[in-house]
Design a protein around this nucleic acid. Sequence first.
DNA 1: CTTTCACATGAACAATTGTTCATGTATTAT
DNA 2: ATAATACATGAACAATTGTTCATGTGAAAG
Lengths: 113, 113
Amino acid sequence: MMAKKPSLSAEAAPSPAAQTPDEDLMYDLAELFRIFGDSTRVKILYVLLNGEKCVGEISELLTATQSAVSHQLRVLKQAKLVKYRREGKTVYYALADDHVRTIIGMGVEHLTE
Amino acid sequence: MMAKKPSLSAEAAPSPAAQTPDEDLMYDLAELFRIFGDSTRVKILYVLLNGEKCVGEISELLTATQSAVSHQLRVLKQAKLVKYRREGKTVYYALADDHVRTIIGMGVEHLTE
DNA sequence: CTTTCACATGAACAATTGTTCATGTATTAT
DNA sequence: ATAATACATGAACAATTGTTCATGTGAAAG
């Protein structure tokens, strides 16, 4: 028989038919997606799909103020969605890993179908 | 400095150009992810991974009020992330398509790695 | 027809969030 | 040391958002 249970979490089996979703996981999931849920931040992630860029370049590409971009870069940094390296006065940001790429790709795919 | 808008556009490619991201696409992307960016809504989507459920079941599983769940189901419905069917007094909700499944899966994967 | 059940929805309030403005920090140049 | 450049950050304000409370709607039962 095919079991139709999600293989995502394995907690102590409560009731047969229905398990309440894990609070912490759900909260973290929502928190993760909330990062993508802002125009400025998706734009930043989007332009970083092509490789690292410094703050100045990013704010030019987005037509956003340097301050706004910096604030959002901090959010992305804290969420470990981007990494950065310093070179003199300039700070270069890049996508932290390929999950970001995949998630954005999924979103675009969903919208363009 | 004075970057001009490119006349050629191939915005849906896997590696988009290092140019100003398309406003509308970015807005829609953010809007899509914002739906996933709330605990109540991800929980709803999560329990629907197992198949369709009625509103009462959902609010029991989430330990949330029926009103709150109904409000969020409306948001999910408007975003075309869930579909529904009526059976007497009961309304059953289900995931609209597999994109939802995939996106949540990506999120969980990102968190558990 | 009236009641009850399952769900939907409007209003209002609190909480969260993103931007701007001003200022702070770090690095390089003069 | 002083200035200039590139970026970060705190405070405050407006806007958005999610919940609760109360009420409304549609369907089946009595």
